[in-house]
Amino acid sequence: MDQTSRFTSLQTSSLVLLRLLIGWHFLYEGVIKLYSPSWTAKGYLLSASYMESFFKWMAGESIIPIIDTLNIGALLLVGFCLIIGFKTRWASIIGIGLLLLYYLAHPPFPGYPQGPSEGSYWLVNKNLIEAAALFVLFLFPTDYSFGIARLFAKPKTVSTNPIP
C-alpha cells in the first residue's frame, strides 16, 4: 500500500512538495474565480483555436453557467484533495482532465494563434507540464505519507508492527 516506503524520505518529501505546489495552484485559481462574480470561461472557450465547435458548444448561453460552476468546483476539489492528502489519485485524474481541456482549447501547435501568453511555446506549454506532473503524482501517491489518508493507513501499520 505504502509505495513511498521504497523511497528515501527526501524522495518522498519531494513528491509531497510537488503535490502541495500543484494543489496550491489549483486551489488559489479556484478561490479567486469563486469570489469573482463576473468571472466566466466564456471568452477563453469562444476564442478556442482547436476543436472549436466543442468549446463553442461549452460556451453556449445555456451551458456556460454549468461549465463555470463545474470548473470552479473541480479546481477547488483538486486543490483541496492534493493539499489535504485525500483521494489524491482521483484528484490527479480530474486535474489532468481540466489541464488537457485548457491545453486543447489553446494548444501551442505550430500555425495556431497563440493568444496572450507570458512565454514562448512549441507543442509543450505549462498546462501540459502540470498535467504530466499530476500523472507522476497519480503513479506515486503520497497521501499515506503526508495527508488525511495516513489516518486510515496507520492503524494497520501500528497493528502489524507494534514496535517500530
Binding site: 486551489l27 469570489y35 489535504i84 495527508g147
Partner: peptide, 20 residues
C-alpha cells in the same frame, strides 16, 4: 503528517479570499 495540509489549505484559501 496527517493534518499538516489543513493550515496550508487555510492559508491559500484565505489569501485568495483576501486578495479578492
Amino acid at each position: 503528517k496527517i493534518l499538516g495540509g489543513i493550515p496550508i489549505f487555510g492559508a491559500v484559501w484565505s489569501a485568495g479570499f483576501r486578495s479578492n
